[in-house]
């Protein structure tokens, strides 16, 4: 199983673009550091079946009502997205 960085988990509260708080240990951790095993992944577009795209940082949301379909980016947090469908 692929290792998660802190910023890809739900046990992390971002302080800024570089670091955040591990909500389980209360430690300040780097956003891109590897999270401990078992931390829950946070929903992001890159984990959604509605996301398509091959570009590293850009893609499309197939669930959007826009024509053409609206842009999306893999790194976007989707915890509040009602169209999110986990892969």
């Amino acid at each position: 199983m692929e290792k998660l960085t802190y910023r890809d988990t739900r046990n992390y509260a971002p302080i800024d673009v570089t670091k955040g708080m591990d909500l389980l240990t209360r430690e300040i951790v780097m956003a891109d550091a590897e999270a401990p095993e078992g931390y829950e992944p946070i929903p992001k577009c890159k984990l959604c079946t509605n996301f398509t795209g091959t570009d590293t940082f850009m893609g499309t949301c197939e669930a959007s009502m826009n024509e053409p379909k609206f842009i999306a980016y893999p790194d976007m947090v989707a915890t509040t997205c009602e169209m999110y469908q986990a892969m």
């Binding site: 800024d16 673009v17 570089t18 891109d32 570009d55 940082f57 850009m58 842009i71 980016y73 893999p74 790194d75 976007m76």
Partner: peptide, 24 residues
């Protein structure tokens, strides 16, 4: 620095968000 891009001289944004920022 690193994976952080400075915009408007003050704010940091993750490099993962920059292409979407510009597209928007």
């Amino acid at each position: 620095f690193g994976k952080v891009i400075s915009i408007a001289g003050k704010f940091g944004i993750r490099q993962e968000e920059v292409p979407a920022l510009l597209k928007l």
